[in-house]
Design a protein around this nucleic acid. Structure first.
Lengths: 101, 101
DNA sequence: CGGCATCCCAAGCGATACTG
DNA sequence: CAGTATCGCTTGGGATGCCG
């Protein structure tokens, strides 16, 4: 097994919140900032902002900003992000099978 | 997608070194402590010890101790650990397809 | 040879406040 | 409503040393 591509994938999962953000967006297609914040239990304002920015830079999510007052920003998964769900699916299968006592 | 089983799987991947340990053992079947240390570039004594212990407690790896002087300890993947390679495989597929720029 | 304990720094993260 | 900045705590993990 080649370590490099696995390492790249792991780099996406780094941090306490990124997986939860991706999963939240996988369920709702499109979510506004505030909706995401409510979906993800316990995440702080700062963390959500920074993690969203990192995921956007990684090309996992798309950010759509509407120039209006009050501001409105929508987030959604890119094709790359949707494909990432295969990884979560493998995790889910393994977790279902082996989740601890 | 159920978060719980995914979260359990993610908990296995927590830390800088656990994925590398699992991957190393996936390539060699059985490795002694010192061999693992040499396989995994840059890992410190302390980290290898602690991560091995955690993986053993999680049931991912098997620890076989030979009561002799000098000590000899062999590590290998359990069935649960081998099954975990499916997760890495999904990661590899995604990484190969989408690795950056 | 392999495990465990100690010390210590840096990164990660939370709380809070300010801005457009 | 969404984003940025600052501060300080907590924790992961690196370096080192002792023990069976």
């Amino acid at each position: 097994m080649d370590k490099c591509s696995v390492a790249y994938t792991l780099s996406i999962l780094v941090g306490k919140w990124k997986p939860l953000i991706i999963l939240a967006l996988s369920q709702e297609e499109i979510l506004r900032y505030g909706q995401l914040k409510r979906e993800i239990d316990g995440i702080t304002h700062k963390m959500l902002s920074s993690q969203l920015k990192e995921l956007e830079q990684a090309g996992i999510i798309h950010r759509e900003e509407y120039p209006q007052i009050p501001p409105k920003v929508e987030y959604s998964l890119t094709e790359k992000g949707v494909a990432f769900l295969d990884v979560f699916n493998a995790m889910k299968i393994w977790g279902d099978r082996y989740a601890s006592p």
